[in-house]
Amino acid sequence: MADLVFVLLSILTVVSALIVAGNSSVIYSAVGLLFTFMGVAGLYVLASADFLAATQMLVYVGGILVLILFAVFLSNRISDAKLSNPTHMRVPSAIVCIALFGLMSNAAVTTEWAVKTNVEYAPTTAVLGRLLMTKYLLPFEVVSVLLLAALIGAALLSRPESAKAALKPDMEEGQ
C-alpha cells in the first residue's frame, strides 16, 4: 500500500514539476509548483518526517508560493489575464538540462543507498527540537542571523527614497 501511495505521490510531483517548467503561463507554473510542494510534502510523510512535511506546506505553500504569486501580480498588469514567460535559448538550456539529468540519474543509480529495512513511523518533532537546540545549535543560529540580515536588508530596500534620505545622516553619524 505504501508503495502505491509512493508511486502516486511521485507521479503528482513529477507531473506538476513538468507543468511548472513547461507551461508558458506564470500563474499556471505557480499552481503547478503548489502541487509539486504538496507531492513533496506527501513524500516526506512517507519518509516518516511529519514535522518536515508540515514545514514544507507552511513555508513553501504559505510563504514562498504566496510571495511568488504576489510578485507576479504586482509586477504585471493585473487586468492582463495572460501572463506568460516566453522561452529563450532553447538549445543551450536543453543541453544543460539533459546533462544535469544524466548526471543526477547516474548518481542516483550508482550510489549505494543505506536502506533502512524496518521503517518505524515515529514522531520526529521532539527529536528535531532537541537536536536543533544541542548538536546543531550553531548552524541554527547562523541561519537565523542570515535570515535576520536578509529581513533588515529587505526592509531597508523597500523604504521610500525620501525616508532613506532622512535616514542617511543618522547612519553616517553612527559610523
Binding site: L74, R77, I78, S79, R159, P160, E161, S162, A163
Partner: peptide, 13 residues
C-alpha cells in the same frame, strides 16, 4: 499616503 516617487508602478483604473 504612499510616496509615489519611490516605486513607479502601473496605475489601475
Amino acid at each position: 499616503t504612499i510616496d509615489q516617487t519611490a516605486l513607479p508602478t502601473q496605475e489601475m483604473t
